[in-house]
Nucleic acid binder design. Structure first.
Ligand SMILES: [Mn+2]
Ligand SMILES: [Mn+2]
Ligand SMILES: [Zn+2]
Ligand SMILES: [Zn+2]
Lengths: 147, 147
DNA sequence: TTCTAATTGAGAATCAATCGCAATTAGTAG
DNA sequence: CTACTAATTGCGATTGATTCTCAATTAGAA
């Protein structure tokens, strides 16, 4: 009963929009990747499995996935917008290696709690937040040292 | 002795680059704004004071300012890259109102400290981080309530 | 089954950012 | 001070991501 597809259907219906084969394919792909993705990733994956579908449709579908709270945009590190699934995953923040691109996900409840306190202090009503720490992962830091 | 201009001069010299009038103007403008800015902001400000200078030069200067640790890129909220001064300002994070665009700066040392602990745990060597909380500022939250 | 508003793909358009190049210039060496 | 040269500039062209336009198609309500 509670699946990304059901939530997406409900959302679309509520908005008077249609659950098309293209939207279903994009949704399936997004949730089968279990990780960060961008428009081109989805485009390539689709075409690899020779299911052609246009970039325009992909770009038009992403905002719907975000609106229905199935995925969210992540911290933009290059120039392309990047997303990750939300449905079925719990909130976390990111450590991003600027050398190899590795992304480490972490969750720290105390940090989360302190953010709430900050918001209260400023009477700010938070909707979402993004915390990204850029630097060198263990492997890449080691390599740098040895140079 | 310690001024943005001196640091910039030193940086440029070390790299064998030149301290041109254009670079000086951009630097001055950046530090006279006391806040966030993007390429167009600088471009417009310059042309308002009818000091013409090309967009290319602005785009070419920003990375130098970042490299010399005078400014840093901030969390990208729209599609343009956005920056803020670092020299002369202490580190802080942001509350961003998605209704009126207001940006509230805050600093929470405990959050900062916890981030370091997270990095240690993953043996991650942090260089910088960005934390942005999006939501409604007091004013805008109030307006929403009353609707 | 019919009907219609929503959707699609293809390519054009947009927008920020980058690039190529000829003319100019900062700043070092003499 | 002058000469030299690599760095810089502005301009326009280009790129790359994203959005838009529009004619043809289709989901899904009636
Ligand atoms: Mn968090
Ligand atoms: Mn911080
Ligand atoms: Zn790494
Ligand atoms: Zn506001």
């Amino acid at each position: 009963m509670f699946s990304p597809e059901n939530r997406f259907r409900d959302y679309l219906k509520k908005k008077g929009l249609k659950f098309t084969p293209e939207r279903r394919l994009i949704l399936k792909k997004v949730f089968s990747l279990h990780g960060h993705f961008d428009a081109d990733k989805i485009y390539d994956e689709m075409h690899k499995k020779n299911r052609k579908l246009s970039r325009a449709t992909i770009y038009r579908t992403f905002p719907l996935l975000v609106e229905s709270n199935l995925v969210k945009e992540t911290l933009r590190c290059q120039k392309r917008a990047n997303y990750e699934p939300v449905f079925g995953y719990s909130h976390h923040d990111h450590l991003i290696c600027i050398n190899c691109g590795r992304v480490i996900e972490f969750r720290n409840d105390l940090i989360e709690h302190l953010q709430e306190k900050v918001c209260k202090k400023y009477r700010f009503e938070p909707l979402e937040h993004r915390l990204g720490i850029k630097g060198y992962c263990q492997k890449c830091a080691g390599k740098r040292q040895r140079r």
